[in-house]
Nucleic acid binder design. Structure first.
Lengths: 336, 336
DNA sequence: CGGCTGTCTGTTAACGGTAACATGTTATCC
DNA sequence: GGATAACATGTTACCGTTAACAGACAGCCG
C-alpha cells in the first residue's frame, strides 16, 4: 500500500502538500492540486487512518460488547447501533461475551488497546469492574439493556419492571392465580427488575404468597430446565411468565413434551418479541421492547459524549415496553 | 491514558525496558521487571495498539461487510465469524450495506483506511469492483454466501443450486406441476443459482415450459410484491418456492390475506431456516444452510491467508445444503 | 520603493511503540 | 589475568500523518 510519501514523490511535491490536498486545508494552487490528485488516483492511495488516529487520539471506532448477537433482541439493537454510528462516520467492533465476566474483561482490554473512542456495553454481570476499568482509562461508556447497581454511568434500557408488571397484570386479569416466573440469572438487572414487576402485580392482587419463581439463565436450555422444575410442582401453575424469548421457547418444549396445550391447559407469555420479519405466525403474548431505537439512542448518547456535548450527570434513559396480546394467553382452565 | 514513557519514568527505566517487560523479550532482571510491573499496575497502563499496528502493519482486525445483520442467516454467520476470529485474537468490525453497492464501496474505503488485515464480504451486487479495489490495495478478502462471476477470489458459500434442486424435486415428488419461484434479485449469485437448481429439476421432469419465475428482492416486501403478482396468474400455482426466509414470510402474508391455507390450498417452501432457538413451531419446509460453519470456515480461510499459509490458488468452498421437510408442504389440492 | 498582506510550499517534530544497534557490567574459562 | 560470553539496559530511528513554524514570492498600498 502506498503512503503519502509515495504520492508526494510521484507528484513532485512534499508530503505536507499532499496532506493539504487530502484535507482541503491551507493554500494549494489549482495546478498542484491536480497533479496530486492524479498521483493519488494512479497509486490508488488510501490514507492510513492508524497514523492519523495516533496523532489525533481518536479512532472513529466504538466497541459493542454484548452477550450474544444471535439473540434477536440484541441483533436488532446492534443494527440500530451500527446505523446510528455509521451515519456519523463511526465504525463498530462487535464482541460476544456469552454472559461471561472473563470474556467481557478480555474484550474490554482488547478494545481499549485498540483505542476505541467509546464502548457500548451490555454487562454480563452486576459487577461494576468493567465500568471502573473504562473510567480509569478515560474511555466513555454507555450501558445497554441492563442497569449496574451503584454505578454512575449513562444507561439506556427498557422498562423491565413496568413491562413485567403489565404482563403479570394481563395474566391476573384473565383470572390466573398461580403464575410461575421463569427468570434469568438474578445477577442481571433485567431479571431483578422483571421479578420486581411480577411481585408488584401479585402484591397488588393480594397474592404475594402465590409467587413462584425459578431462576435460570436467559437461554433455551435455561427455560427448559426451569420449566421442568415448575411442572413438577403441585398444584401446577395455570400461567407461565418467561423472562425472555429463549426461556419461552425452552418452556414451550417442556409443555409440549408433557402434552400440555397453550393456552388451553396453560398460558405462556414472555418478555421480548421476535421481529415481524421472522414471524410466521404471531403467537406469543409478549412485552416488546424498542430494541432498534434503544441502540440508536445509546449510540447518540455516546457520540454526544465524545463530541463533548453531553451533560456531566450520567443519564438513564428508560424506554417504555409494550404489551402485545396474542394467542398464547387465555383464561385459566376450569378446575376439575 | 498513560503511555509507555509514563511507565518508564515511574519505574526509573527507559521505555525500551518497559517494552521488554510487556513483550517478554530480551533480558530483564527480576528486580527491574517487578518495578516495571508495579508501575504498569499503578498507572493502569494499557499499550497503544495503534502505535504497534503502525510499526507492524497489522491490526489484528478484520472487517465483516454484509447486507443486513438482522437476517437470521447472516446473524448466525456473523456469530461464527466472531467466534473464529476472537479465538485467534482478531477483532471484527461489522457493516450493513443493505444490498447497496454504494454503501459497500463506502465501507470498504473506511475499513481499508483503518488498515484491517482482511475483509469478509457478502457482495451486494455482481460487480467485481470491490474485489478489485481490495486486491489493488493488497487487502486479502474472502467472499461469503455469494459467488462473484469471473473474479478469482476465495469464496465460502452454500450450495444454492443443489439446494434449490432438492427443494423443487421435493415439490415435484409430492405431485406439484405448477411451481412458482419467488426469487431474489438476479444480480445476486444465490438467486441465479437457485433459479438454476429450480430449472434443472423442472427440466428433468419435462416441465421446462411450466417454469414461472418472479424476480424481486430478498425482503418481506419483495416477497409480498412478487407473491401478489403470482396469485394474479391463472392457472394459479399449487406450490411456491421462496428463495429466502424473508420472501417466504412476505408470501405467507399474501396467501393469508387471500384466504389460502398452507399447505392445504398451496404448498410454500423456502431457502434458509430459522435457528431452532427462535422457532415456536417448526412449520416451513426449507433448505437449511450451515451458516455458523460457513462463517467459521471463511474466517479460518482468511486468517490462514494472513498467516501466509494458504495456497496461491483461490479456493471455493461449497457447503452442502440440507432439505428439512416440515408441515408447509403437501400434495397439491385436487383439481376441481 | 519599502513594507505589508496573501498565497504557496517545505521542514521539523510529535503521536506511542519497538527493532537494531550500542554500551556497560558481571561471570567464566583457559 | 585477559579474552569471551551472557546478561542488562539505553539510544536512535522509523512506522504514516499533520500542526506549527518558516521561507519565498507576488501584488498592493502609501
Amino acid at each position: 500500500m502506498s503512503t503519502i510519501g509515495d504520492v508526494a514523490k510521484r507528484a513532485g511535491v512534499s508530503a505536507m502538500t499532499v496532506s493539504r490536498v487530502i484535507n482541503n486545508s491551507g493554500y494549494i494552487s489549482q495546478e498542484t492540486r491536480e497533479r496530486v490528485e492524479q498521483a493519488i488516483a494512479e497509486l490508488g492511495y488510501v490514507p492510513n487512518a492508524l497514523a492519523r488516529s495516533l496523532r489525533f487520539k481518536r479512532t472513529k471506532t466504538i466497541a459493542l460488547i454484548l452477550t450474544d448477537i444471535t439473540n434477536p433482541f440484541f441483533t436488532t439493537l446492534a443494527r440500530g447501533i451500527e446505523d446510528a454510528a455509521s451515519e456519523q462516520g463511526f465504525s463498530v467492533i462487535f464482541c460476544n461475551t456469552d454472559e461471561s465476566q472473563d470474556e467481557e474483561a478480555e474484550y474490554l482490554s482488547v478494545v481499549v488497546q485498540k483505542q476505541v473512542d467509546g464502548v457500548l456495553l451490555v454487562p454480563a454481570s452486576s459487577s461494576s469492574e468493567s465500568v471502573t476499568f473504562l473510567r480509569d482509562r478515560g474511555v466513555p461508556c454507555v450501558l445497554l439493556d441492563r442497569r449496574l447497581p451503584g454505578a454512575a454511568v449513562d444507561t439506556v434500557r427498557g422498562d423491565s419492571e413496568a413491562g413485567a408488571y403489565q404482563l403479570t397484570r394481563h395474566l391476573l386479569d384473565l383470572g390466573h392465580r398461580r403464575i410461575a416466573l421463569l427468570n434469568g440469572p438474578s445477577s442481571v438487572s433485567t431479571a431483578e427488575d422483571r421479578l420486581a414487576g411480577y411481585r408488584r402485580a401479585l402484591d397488588e392482587a393480594g397474592l404475594s404468597s402465590a409467587a413462584s419463581v425459578y431462576e435460570g439463565s436467559y437461554t433455551v436450555e435455561g427455560g427448559y430446565r426451569t420449566a421442568k422444575q415448575m411442572l413438577a410442582a403441585a398444584p401446577r401453575p395455570t400461567a407461565v411468565f418467561a423472562a425472555n424469548n429463549f426461556i419461552a421457547i425452552g418452556a414451550l418444549r417442556v409443555l409440549r413434551e408433557a402434552g400440555l396445550r397453550v393456552p388451553d391447559n396453560l398460558s405462556l407469555v414472555a418478555f421480548d418479541d421476535l421481529p415481524t420479519t421472522m414471524m410466521i405466525d404471531p403467537f406469543f403474548t409478549v412485552i416488546g421492547q424498542p430494541a432498534y431505537e434503544m441502540g440508536q439512542r445509546a449510540t447518540q448518547l455516546l457520540l454526544e459524549h465524545l463530541a463533548g456535548q453531553s451533560p456531566a450527570e450520567p443519564q438513564e434513559i428508560v424506554l417504555p415496553a409494550q404489551l402485545i396480546v396474542r394467542r398464547s394467553s387465555g383464561p385459566p382452565p376450569a378446575e376439575i
